[in-house]
Nucleic acid binder design. Structure first.
Ligand SMILES: [Zn+2]
Ligand SMILES: [Zn+2]
Ligand SMILES: [Zn+2]
Ligand SMILES: [Zn+2]
Lengths: 145, 145
DNA sequence: TCTTGACCCTGTAGCGACTACAGGGTCCTA
DNA sequence: TAGGACCCTGTAGTCGCTACAGGGTCAAGA
């Protein structure tokens, strides 16, 4: 008997109950049948599907990408190119995020290095956080492209 | 004369007009005086302050942190410890994000490496995206902690 | 039998940080 | 006087949940 309540399914997949109901509402997880008392009753397919959803979400795919992956997984006879493409694109996005955050980290470290203690008025950290404005003003008053 | 329209201020700080109005609504940027035709008219302080806001936002600080930094910057006589602490904490958050994304990248690469082309039904990528469910079922049916 | 408490239901509103309209008004130039 | 670029307010949408409020259901214990 593989009938799970929503709470059991949540514990099984490390998912909050509200999240499961949310996935149902947006059509990501199919609505299960109901008991006499109107409780949701999940079967093995739901467990499998929600597991897939959680895993891919944890890997950072968007809901729309998860939807795509689920659709592809259901068409086992097609070549796996599309699947791999999706993963490749997400890998690229992830790499760009890492690069951006790494630049950020460097800037924050440099900012901190500039502080030698003292009063805020003289602190180079605050100065480093203020962008140079002189050059900008000129640009503005000039063209309006 | 340093009176800027909202459009000029936006170009000067690379900020969308809607965002400037949003910052005003949430009390991050003070409301400027108005012209006879009810247009916002910004002065040099606004340019300076919005510049600071954008720079700190670009560095990934939250709006609440920006608020804090602005408050601190206005109290130049205090020691700069609090400022530096804020930056340190944000640096730590940034480092944790980088670590998490790096783990993600490794998982995505490993997943992709497993694919050798073929049909989706046999593709290891899809399998790698499906979590093992057998162990989980047992846990669930057991305790309900 | 009654009550407690754990669980479940629906529906709505909130988060952060914007962004995108809709439906107007103003200003400058030709 | 007309056009177009600019500005105004207000509201709703984005993403992916999360947190209630105000109920109903169910099983075990006194
Ligand atoms: Zn098919
Ligand atoms: Zn300092
Ligand atoms: Zn002070
Ligand atoms: Zn493949």
């Amino acid at each position: 008997m593989d009938a799970l309540t929503i709470g059991q399914l949540g514990r099984a997949t490390d998912t909050k109950i509200e999240t499961i109901r949310y996935y149902e509402k947006i059509g990501l997880l199919p609505a299960p049948r109901r008991t006499a008392g109107n409780y949701r009753s999940y079967a093995a397919e739901h467990l499998q599907r929600l597991g897939f959803i959680r895993r891919t979400r944890d890997l950072g795919f968007t809901i729309e990408q998860v939807r795509e992956l689920l659709k592809l997984a259901a068409h086992g006879e097609k070549p796996c190119e599309e699947v791999d493409q999706l993963v490749v694109r997400h890998l690229e996005v992830t790499e760009r995020k890492i690069a951006a955050l790494t630049r950020l980290r460097r800037e924050l470290r440099e900012t901190l290095d500039s502080c030698q203690g003292g009063r805020i008025a003289e602190c180079r950290v605050i100065q480093a956080l203020s962008p140079p404005t002189a050059a900008r003003k000129k640009r503005v008053l000039g063209s309006r492209t």
